[in-house]
């Protein structure tokens, strides 16, 4: 995967966020403050504009631009969380990224989210989608899976992680004020994170 391939991943994520804006907002209205779809869409639209204006020349520069733009444009909790994830990915990305390298990059992003948000698995946050995805990616790489298979496994694990947030009681963020009333709804952050992994499987999953 080179800079252009990874850029295609980011653009596919922006497209999925725009397509699912209403869905993300509805999920957030149920247990948060109803702005996740609009905030992420505003952020990713700005990311695509920034990439168009000045195409980055390395994976690291790409991720840095994505992270800085999200931090500057999104606000709320998702701006710092996604922004920190991409800044950590920038710090760990080599000049070209193979599947194992992508797993390493994504793991660095997960570590960033955990460091920033201090959420643990089961708190009903984006970690519940991202952590199983990174684990699945590592396992697939270790088992010698193709890039396509590995990224599909990661996307599937993210989706399952997202589904698993539905019965959970939120322990972080504004949803935690609801206590038991937060159960019965999928977490909006885990949902947008699943879109990020689906985008990877779509945009980067062509090569075997």
């Amino acid at each position: 995967m080179d800079t252009d391939d990874l850029g295609a991943w980011i653009r596919e994520f922006a497209r999925l966020v725009a397509q699912n804006k209403e869905k993300l907002t509805d999920l957030d209205s149920a247990i948060g403050d109803g702005d996740h779809g609009a905030n992420m869409d505003r952020g990713m639209t700005a990311v695509v504009a920034a990439l168009d204006a000045e195409p980055p020349d390395s994976p690291s520069a790409l991720f840095k631009k994505v992270g800085m733009t999200l931090i500057s444009k999104v606000g709320g909790a998702s701006g710092p969380l996604y922004g920190t994830a991409f800044l950590r990915m920038a710090a760990s990305a080599d000049t070209t990224v193979d599947t194992a390298g992508f797993a390493k990059v994504l793991r660095a992003g997960l570590d960033g989210v955990v460091a920033r948000g201090k959420a643990e698995l089961g708190d009903k946050t984006m970690v519940d989608a991202l952590a199983p995805a990174v684990d699945a990616l590592d396992a697939a790489v270790a088992a010698g899976a193709s890039q396509k298979e590995a990224l599909r496994a990661a996307a599937d694990a993210a989706g399952q992680g997202r589904e698993a947030t539905i019965p959970l009681v939120a322990r972080k963020g504004r949803a935690s004020y609801l206590g038991e009333r937060s159960a019965g709804h999928a977490d909006p952050g885990a949902t947008s994170t699943t879109l990020l992994l689906i985008a990877a499987a779509t945009a980067l999953g062509d090569e075997d």
């Binding site: 909790a77 710092p80 920033r116 948000g117 963020g173």
Partner: peptide, 11 residues
């Protein structure tokens, strides 16, 4: 003390 405020000020 709101998650978003705390994280943005931290950054």
């Amino acid at each position: 003390n709101y998650t978003g405020d705390v994280m943005n000020f931290e950054l």
